[in-house]
């Protein structure tokens, strides 16, 4: 293709700059507000570009209160346990289904793929979780979301694209299927396993729906605490500061500090994994 005209280029660059700003600015606004004092927030009305006297007071208060700390622990535990469980089950199933001549493999694959087209709905799911005795247990956050058909397909098509001669020769040498999976397939699939882990981890970290349906408030993970304090405006930590005879940090700063706590893990992991998306790990799988 010939190089674009100057005007066209300028328009494109402008558009991209604006889009990037619209995506990134809200994050900055949240972080800056969480570091601000009441003075600054009153003066600027949430539009704190950069706090003159940044303070971590809001973070100190939310972590001394107990609720946020406990919710954070719940979220971390569910995310770690859930991701490990989901990953093991999905990798095992994808590896099995990647073998073309597997007896019944076609049928099993269809059972899984068809679930992409429908979902059972809120009421039947609730009744099932209740019948299984999972109500108000952390299992209700993990088991109903154990395998995603999409992730299964991503892994399976990656496994199918591995050089089959390699697996064949290992089989000739007498390696069993399990050994092939652990010693040959997994070491070759680090990138795609990392991407799928991210998908699962993010889903567990953001788990809202299942927690709302199945858990009592004393077991709530971070997203529900966030809703309670930020969206439903429940006062947070003010009593603690007042009891200690201090002026509480501004409500907005406290709220945004909780948002930041929920955001940070995602923002930390994302840069290491995003290069795999742009490298096209997914394009092969997404392409119909």
């Amino acid at each position: 293709m010939e190089p674009p005209t100057r005007l066209g280029l300028a328009a494109k660059v402008m558009t991209l700059v604006i889009i990037s700003f619209v995506v990134l600015y809200p994050f900055a606004a949240v972080v800056m507000t969480s570091l601000s004092t009441q003075d600054e927030i009153t003066r600027n009305g949430g539009l704190v570009l950069f706090p003159v006297e940044p303070t971590l007071e809001a973070y100190r208060v939310i972590f001394s209160g107990g609720t946020v700390t406990r919710a954070l622990l719940v979220s971390v535990a569910v995310t770690v346990a859930g991701t490990l469980a989901s990953l093991s089950v999905t990798v095992a199933m994808a590896f099995a289904l990647a073998r073309r001549e597997l007896t019944g493999g076609r049928a099993i694959l269809m059972v899984a793929l068809f679930t992409m087209l429908f979902s059972p709905g809120i009421i039947p799911n609730y009744l099932l979780v209740k019948e299984l005795g999972l109500l108000n247990s952390f299992g209700s956050l993990i088991l109903p979301a154990l395998v995603s058909a999409f992730n299964l397909v991503v892994l399976r098509s990656f496994f199918m694209g591995l050089p089959q001669e390699l697996l064949e020769s290992a089989r000739m040498d007498g390696a069993g299927d399990l050994r092939i999976l652990l010693r040959i397939v997994l070491p070759l699939s680090k990138a795609v396993v990392a991407v799928v882990s991210l998908f699962y981890a993010v889903a567990y970290w953001n788990a809202f729906f299942n927690a709302l349906l199945y858990l009592e408030s004393d077991k709530w993970p971070l997203p529900l605490i966030l809703r309670l304090y930020v969206l439903q405006g429940q006062p947070l930590g003010a009593d603690i500061a007042a009891a200690a005879g201090e002026v509480p940090p501004p409500a907005q700063a406290l709220q945004m500090a909780v948002v930041v706590v929920a955001l940070v893990p995602i923002l930390l992991v994302y840069p290491f994994l995003q290069r795999y998306f742009t490298k096209g790990v997914l394009t092969g799988a997404v392409k119909g």
């Binding site: 997203p223 709220q255 945004m256 994302y270 995003q274 290069r275 742009t278």
Partner: peptide, 19 residues
């Protein structure tokens, strides 16, 4: 630009509505 615009996909709705 891709790595910027993919980011919000990973943010949960509670956080997005709060933002």
């Amino acid at each position: 630009v891709q790595s910027i615009v993919y980011l919000p996909h990973f943010i949960g709705w509670v956080i997005i509505v709060s933002i």
